[in-house]
Amino acid sequence: MSALNSPTGFITSSFKHALGWARKFSIFQYPFVTACCGMEYMATNCAHYDQDRFGAGFPRFSPRQSDVLFVVGTISQKMAPVLKTVYDQMCEPKWVVAFGVCTCTGGFYDNYATVMGIDTIIPVDIYIPGCPPRPENVLDGLIKLQEKIQRGEQSRTLYDPHTKTGRPVELQGGYTIEGHIKHIEAKS
């Protein structure tokens, strides 16, 4: 995208690429804030960490006007239908970010009241684990989401707790040292 350097003054790009570029810097997010993670969400949004640098600074409080659903905090069984309703009201294209470990896997609230991962209810694009994740961690997740938007990808699958499919391997069996080493080796 460097029109200044090109000799003709024109740039060429595929339509899909340009669309992705336009979308990723104008993220209108719906913060579905329920619990502790909301405090870190606030911190990320305010002056110190400033989400606005990534074009994601302006929360829309109507699901119909937003395109990224930030699910921030534990979702209880009582809350689950509300979350599903909000997700269904959003227009396509839409993405979902699971913010905090409770939304990723349920975390240490493995009990009668809590949904063990929102990906059993709605498809999740980006998982940001942490209890709560540090703002740096959140910004990292946001950049990963932008990459995904640029590629034009969206998650469409739900997690099945019986067959254990549809969730990143790292989040399936909890944390193990062997798994962590394997993960690092695969990356390098």
């Binding site: 069984q77 009582k78 689950a80 239908p81 599903k84 493995d110 009990n111 009668y112 009241a113 949904v115 063990m116 059993t120 209810i121 099945d160 707790p161 019986h162």
Partner: peptide, 26 residues
């Protein structure tokens, strides 16, 4: 919620017996 069966803090209610309103039973 009203649909919940039983009383959760009784000792004979298992702590991880879920009664989801939506989503899979697990």
């Amino acid at each position: 919620y009203e649909e919940f069966q039983g009383h959760a803090l009784r000792k004979d209610y298992p702590f991880n017996k879920r009664q989801p309103l939506i989503g899979p039973q697990y």
